[in-house]
Design a protein around this nucleic acid. Structure first.
Lengths: 139, 139
DNA sequence: AGAAATTTGTCCGTATGTATC
DNA sequence: AGATACATACGGACAAATTTC
């Protein structure tokens, strides 16, 4: 099989499928997810891909894995055992407001690179950080 | 080559080496890191391992990666570096835009605390960071 | 404008190390 | 000790975004 990833990446799709099973109760909280090899067989995906999907669920608090034991389903994002802080990211090109245009000494028609970091605690947004930089030369 | 990882994992070691270069100025903020293939050659590591190391730096805010372009060195984890590179700051209350209002789950009439950090290098603005929070912990 | 080269993103298959049961 | 499962690492391939010519 080649490597088609037209829409979402494979591991995104797999993560979504697993998340849905947890949400719907097919995989009850506190129970083990299928093993990596089982998921590998079911989704016809490589181990690394399965592990990326599980890693995604772990970062978002849906599961917790224990070394040498397995991966457990949690109650939900930041539901039961896990997480204090999470961090999401987004990047895009934006038109600077007057202040930014002045600081960077560019026209207001120019574009800046904006990165946004969202820090959550127990599922609540604690702070949002927006970083602005000049778009690297040549554009 | 086998896969020894006795002490620290290789991607930890590589990440540390790269972070050291950023901190010491060998790789100045805003400039590109060597390409993945260059790092592959230098560290004699597989590309996946290099990408793991870079991913570590990205999670901790040391670098930012752009598809098809490269990986840029940042100043450090967010606004952290109280470095000699001058840094101004300003504090004020602002009305959240729609996105911020949604993230913080507040009305658009509410006010958020905005802190602005301006980092200059050689007198030129390198980056502007704006942090938004609900309640100031210690104003 | 368009094609080629460069660079990061994703995926595959495999092998070995390490921790737990 | 053996079985199971996660962690790390290798190498190769194709896809997508960007830059360069």
């Amino acid at each position: 099989m080649p490597t088609p990833h037209y829409g979402q990446p494979r591991y995104h799709v797999i993560a979504d499928a697993l998340r849905e099973r947890i949400e719907s109760g097919v995989i009850p909280p506190g129970t083990l997810l299928p093993t990596e090899s089982a998921l590998t067989a079911e989704f016809r995906a490589a181990r690394g891909t399965i592990r990326q999907a599980i890693g995604l669920l772990r970062e978002t608090g849906w599961v917790s894995t224990e070394h040498g034991r397995g991966t457990y389903a949690n109650l939900g994002p930041f539901g039961s055992p896990p997480s204090e802080t999470s961090e999401l990211r987004r990047r895009r090109r934006v038109v600077p407001d007057r202040e930014l245009a002045t600081l960077f000494a560019v026209d207001e028609g120019a574009t800046l690179l904006e990165e946004q970091f969202v820090t959550k605690v127990d599922g609540n947004v604690r702070e949002v950080v927006r970083r602005y930089r000049l778009t690297p030369p040549a554009l």
